[in-house]
Design a protein around this nucleic acid. Structure first.
Lengths: 215, 215
DNA sequence: ACATGTGAACTGCTTCACAGCG
DNA sequence: CGCTGTGAAGCAGTTCACATGT
């Protein structure tokens, strides 16, 4: 299919942003859009937009811009969103629970198929169609149900152990909410969502701003 | 204080990671650490670690490595974590609620001082010491209580409007959980936590992996 | 002898600028 | 003529390699 060269993570992130904006534009009745407009909303430049898209093909018409339905379809295709992905959530604490109930997953084609915890008090409780399963079942369930993506929503000290089990069971994509970096083989893709890191980034920006003003 | 040159966001992210690992190492009773060990755990190289730290000073001893308590203190200082920061959360939906109850905030020196919503059914409800306030009060409260950081946990279509209000009220740091990019003046720092984007990144990785195997 | 700190080399992402096409 | 698509140039972040200090 596509992908000849290695695509930068930053490019993929922007494709996601473009897709979101295209969907919004379509719902407002627009049918074409220029790289300039896509850039303005995505916080980048028109040249960047065109370069990002050019890795995958030529989707625009010179002098016209891009046809929104076509470009939307192409981006969904590039991002692998033509199919549904099955997601399991590890950890039924605050974050795991919020994620399990989060509508956005299903809306975007990510089906939460199971939630796991090892706390006996949580196992068996359910929201909507989902029942919290015993962490013991993890490997057997994965072998039977073949989920593609795992979300780690457990404390940092348990993250590596859980990640190891997921990898051994064949999971190739992990979304890690634990505040710890996890080690995985190169064929496993990990994305980190680290609240502490983001807050500390803001803290850094606020303090260095202040120290500049001090001068 | 510090910061002479512009520091890359990637550097700040790594400082956060180093800090987390230092704290963990301290709790295991270690007192010194080498750039090599910091790198292994942070998923980077020892040269990168040394370069990152060198922007802010010389913290190590040649032939020895870094003293963990000193380096920890320095990193906390660099990241602006010697003081507490007051955080307000906009939106008392699934994500806002989970964040408001999240222990990690306080543990790391980020005090959630208020939660806002415009839904009358949510206003007045409380968890622990926090009461959900009417979004109408936002500007008055900010003027009186001077929170430094705002977390946006509202639907994408409302994010820009809320961000505009926050900026006009003087907020300089925003953590945006909405799946939309928000536009702010250059003196306002925004960090995005975009679940859809992360999932789509995993989807992309999984599909391009598969298409490589097809060949 | 060992591990840091850092200029220099390198790699790769971003921006420029214009040729190409509708 | 307008806007895309893209080589070439520019720049920022990473890696290298070694001088330096303990």
């Amino acid at each position: 299919m596509h992908l000849v060269k290695r695509i930068a993570e930053s490019t993929v992130r922007r494709l996601s942003i473009y897709l979101r904006f295209l969907e919004e534009s379509a719902s407002r009745g627009l049918t074409t859009i220029s790289s300039e407009e896509l850039a303005r909303r995505g916080g980048t430049t028109s040249a960047q937009v065109r370069k990002d898209l050019s890795f995958f093909g030529s989707f625009g018409k010179r002098g016209m811009g891009y046809a929104i339905p076509e470009l939307t379809a192409s981006l969904r295709d590039i991002l692998g969103l033509r199919r549904e992905w099955r997601v399991i959530i590890i950890g039924a604490g605050k974050i795991g629970t919020a994620l399990a109930q989060y509508r956005g997953f299903r809306q975007r084609g990510f089906l939460v198929s199971a939630v796991y915890d090892h706390d006996a008090r949580k196992i068996g409780s359910k929201w909507e169609a989902l029942v919290v399963r015993d962490m013991e079942q993890l490997e057997k369930d994965i072998a039977r149900e073949h989920p593609e993506i795992a979300v780690l929503a457990i404390p940092g000290e348990d993250a590596q152990t859980a990640a190891d089990r997921l990898v051994r069971a064949g999971i190739k994509a992990i979304l890690n909410f634990a505040p710890t970096q996890i080690q995985t083989p190169p064929d496993v893709t990990v994305r980190n969502v680290n609240m502490a890191m983001e807050l500390e980034g803001l803290s850094f920006a606020l303090s260095s701003r202040d120290s500049k003003l001090d001068k």
